[in-house]
Amino acid sequence: MLSLPLASKRLNLTGVADLVEFQGETPFPVEYKRGKPKLHRADEVQLCAQALCLEEMTGQRVPTGALFYAQTKRRSTVPFDTQLRALTEATIADLATVLASRQTPPPTPHRTRCRACSLLELCRPESVNRPVRQWRDQMLSKALEAP
């Protein structure tokens, strides 16, 4: 599977699409996910962000894309309607605010989301929620046990 680098100067956004099919001149992004569809819209927002990048890059409107979930082996079409586009742009703006603050946000209280997160090793929420002394003591203990 070939991935495609994406960018939008207007949104100050870069990323990589898993797959972009072309239906004539119209790009059709496809995002592959390991699990199953989620109860929130994060996957749809990610796909819509890809569509916004593709629109800027190609000059073509991208009306739909698809999410393929490996667990269900189903591909579902996602229409990029006004509501999803607004949610996506608001999410991008919120992320820009977090990045501009140069402060790491606290981990989500929804711990079940962490298992499937690609940033888990960078975030390390289990370390953030413990007192520093407890973490330090645990790290020292591990270091002393090592041969």
Rank of each mutant, 00 (worst) to 15 (best):
103 Q>E: 13
132 V>P: 10
50 Q>D: 11
145 E>N: 02
66 A>E: 00
95 L>C: 12
73 K>T: 11
44 E>Q: 05
33 K>I: 12
38 K>M: 06
111 R>N: 06
84 L>A: 13
50 Q>F: 02
88 T>D: 00
38 K>N: 12
72 T>M: 03
41 R>C: 09
42 A>D: 15
80 F>M: 03
68 F>Q: 10
139 M>N: 01
51 A>P: 02
52 L>S: 03
48 C>Q: 07
70 A>D: 14
89 E>A: 04
36 K>Y: 00
13 L>D: 07
60 Q>M: 00
96 A>M: 06
69 Y>P: 01
15 G>C: 09
138 Q>V: 05
84 L>I: 07
59 G>V: 06
72 T>W: 01
20 V>D: 09
31 E>Y: 08
21 E>A: 15
39 L>R: 15
22 F>Q: 09
129 N>D: 14
99 L>F: 12
130 R>D: 14
31 E>C: 05
131 P>M: 11
15 G>I: 05
100 A>D: 15
142 K>F: 13
6 L>D: 05
69 Y>F: 05
93 A>V: 03
112 T>N: 11
91 T>K: 14
110 H>L: 05
85 R>C: 10
143 A>M: 14
129 N>F: 08
8 S>G: 09
108 T>R: 10
108 T>C: 14
6 L>V: 09
32 Y>Q: 04
110 H>C: 10
16 V>M: 12
11 L>Y: 11
6 L>Q: 04
130 R>H: 09
46 Q>W: 07
145 E>V: 07
55 E>Q: 04
147 P>T: 09
23 Q>S: 07
90 A>Y: 01
131 P>T: 01
52 L>H: 03
119 L>E: 13
137 D>N: 14
12 N>G: 04
17 A>H: 05
67 L>T: 02
118 S>R: 13
133 R>K: 15
58 T>R: 12
30 V>P: 06
143 A>T: 13
53 C>G: 08
96 A>G: 03
89 E>G: 04
137 D>I: 09
103 Q>S: 13
96 A>T: 00
68 F>N: 09
88 T>Y: 02
133 R>A: 12
125 P>V: 11
20 V>R: 13
140 L>E: 12
49 A>P: 02
13 L>V: 06
41 R>I: 13
125 P>C: 05
8 S>K: 00
17 A>E: 06
85 R>I: 14
143 A>H: 10
32 Y>K: 00
8 S>V: 05
93 A>T: 03
128 V>R: 15
5 P>N: 01
12 N>Y: 04
105 P>I: 06
116 A>Y: 07
89 E>R: 15
73 K>E: 13
12 N>T: 03
17 A>G: 07
90 A>N: 07
95 L>F: 11
64 T>F: 03
129 N>G: 11
108 T>N: 13
62 V>W: 00
